[in-house]
C-alpha cells in the first residue's frame, strides 16, 4: 500500500514539474512585450526599459524559470502586473469563491446522478429507464453557460428568488454566500449529472452481467440484494474516475460560469489576466489549477486502491 502511494506521489511530482516547464515555455513565446502591454502604447522606450529591469525580464530564460520555481517553494508566485498585489494572495482571495462553487456543483451532480443511475440500471429496459436515458442524453448536450442564462432568466429576472449575479463575499454571511453560488452550481452540475448518471448506470449494468453476480444469486440473494451487496462497490471504479475528471472540469469550468454570473472567482481572475497579459497571474493560477487536477487524480488513485484489494499490492 505504501509503495503504491509512493509511486503515485512520484508520478504526481513528475507531472507537476513537467507542467511548470510547459506553462513557463508557453508564456515565454507569447507575442508582445509584457512591459509595453502594461504601460500602454504611449509609454516611452525608457519607461518600458526601466519596467523590464524591475520585472526581471532582462535575465536569461533559465534564470527566470529557476527563480520562479524557487519562489514557488516559498509560496511566492510573483506579483501581478495589473493588480500589483502578490499572485498567491489573489489566488487565495478567489479560491474561496471557486472551490465552494465546484464542490457544491460536484455534490449536487453526485447526489442526483448516483441514485438515478442505480434506479435506471435496476429497471433496465423499462419505460422509466428509457425516459431517464432520453433526459440524460439531452442533458449532456446542454452547454452549461446557456443553461445558466436560462436559470438567471427564470429564477432571478422572472421569479426574483435569487440574485442574478455577483458575490458579496462570505463576510455577508454563509447563507447569502451560498445563495449567490446556488444558481451557478446548479448550472454547472446538471449537465455533469447527466453524464455521471449514464456512467453509473452502464457501470452497474456491466457488473450485473458478471459471473459473481450469478454466484450471488445462486446463493439465494434476490436481484436487489445482489445489486446492493455485490454490484455497487464493483461499479464504483468507473464512477470515481468520472467524478475525478468532473471535479477538475468543474473547477476549470468556472472560467465560463463565473463570467455569466459575474463572480469574483479564480476563473474570472485567470480570464482577465490572460486578456490583460498579466503573466505572473496566468502562470500562477494555471499552475495552481493543474496542481489541483493532479492532486485530484492522485486521490482518485488512492480511492481505487481503497475500493479494490487487487490494486493494493502492485502499482497498476
Amino acid at each position: 500500500m505504501s509503495w503504491f502511494i509512493a509511486r503515485r506521489l512520484l508520478s504526481l511530482a513528475v507531472t507537476l514539474l513537467l507542467a511548470t516547464v510547459v506553462i513557463f515555455a508557453v508564456l515565454e513565446i507569447v507575442p508582445g512585450d509584457p512591459a509595453r502591454l502594461m504601460l500602454g502604447i504611449n509609454a516611452t522606450d525608457d519607461a518600458v526599459a526601466t519596467l523590464r529591469e524591475q520585472l526581471g525580464l532582462n535575465q536569461p530564460v533559465l534564470m527566470r524559470y529557476l527563480s520562479w520555481i524557487a519562489g514557488m517553494f516559498q509560496g511566492d508566485l510573483g506579483h501581478s502586473f495589473t493588480y500589483g498585489s502578490p499572485v498567491a494572495e489573489l489566488i487565495g482571495e478567489r479560491i474561496v469563491v471557486s472551490l465552494p462553487l465546484a464542490l457544491m456543483a460536484l455534490a449536487i451532480s453526485t447526489a442526483i446522478a448516483i441514485p438515478v443511475g442505480i434506479y435506471a440500471a435496476s429497471r433496465r429496459g423499462s419505460a422509466t429507464d428509457t425516459a431517464i436515458m432520453a433526459v440524460t442524453q439531452f442533458g449532456i448536450a446542454v452547454p452549461n453557460f446557456w443553461f445558466a442564462l436560462l436559470l438567471v432568466y427564470f429564477f432571478a429576472i422572472f421569479l426574483r428568488w435569487v440574485p442574478a449575479g455577483g458575490f458579496a463575499g462570505w463576510d455577508e454571511g454563509i447563507a447569502s454566500g451560498f445563495r449567490s453560488l446556488l444558481l451557478p452550481a446548479v448550472a454547472l452540475a446538471l449537465p455533469q449529472a447527466a453524464i455521471l448518471s449514464r456512467v453509473a448506470r452502464s457501470a452497474i449494468i456491466e457488473v450485473l452481467g458478471e459471473d459473481f453476480i450469478r454466484t450471488a444469486r445462486a446463493k439465494g440473494l434476490t436481484r436487489r440484494a445482489a445489486l446492493w451487496r455485490h454490484a455497487l462497490r464493483n461499479a464504483l471504479i468507473p464512477v470515481v474516475t468520472i467524478m475525478g475528471l468532473q471535479f477538475a472540469f468543474l473547477l476549470a469550468g468556472t472560467i465560463i460560469i463565473e463570467n455569466v454570473f459575474y463572480l469574483p472567482g479564480l476563473g474570472r481572475l485567470v480570464y482577465q489576466a490572460i486578456t490583460q497579459h498579466d503573466l505572473p497571474v496566468v502562470q500562477g493560477t494555471v499552475l495552481f489549477l493543474v496542481g489541483f487536477v493532479v492532486v485530484t487524480n492522485f486521490l482518485v488513485d488512492i480511492t481505487y486502491a481503497w475500493i479494490d484489494p487487487r490494486l493494493r499490492r502492485r502499482g497498476r
Binding site: 508520478s11 513528475v14 507531472t15 507537476l16 513537467l18 507542467a19 510547459v22 508557453v26 508564456l27 507569447v30 507575442p31 477538475a248 472540469f249 473547477l251 476549470a252 469550468g253 472560467i255 465560463i256 485567470v270 480570464y271 490572460i274 486578456t275 496566468v282 494555471v286 489549477l289 493543474v290 487536477v293 493532479v294 487524480n297
Partner: peptide, 23 residues
Amino acid sequence: MRFNDLVFAFPSILSAVMITAIF
C-alpha cells in the same frame, strides 16, 4: 503515457482559453 498524463493535467477549457487569448 507521460505526455498524455501531462496534457490531461491541464484543464482543457482553461488551456484553450489561454491559447486563443495569447495567440
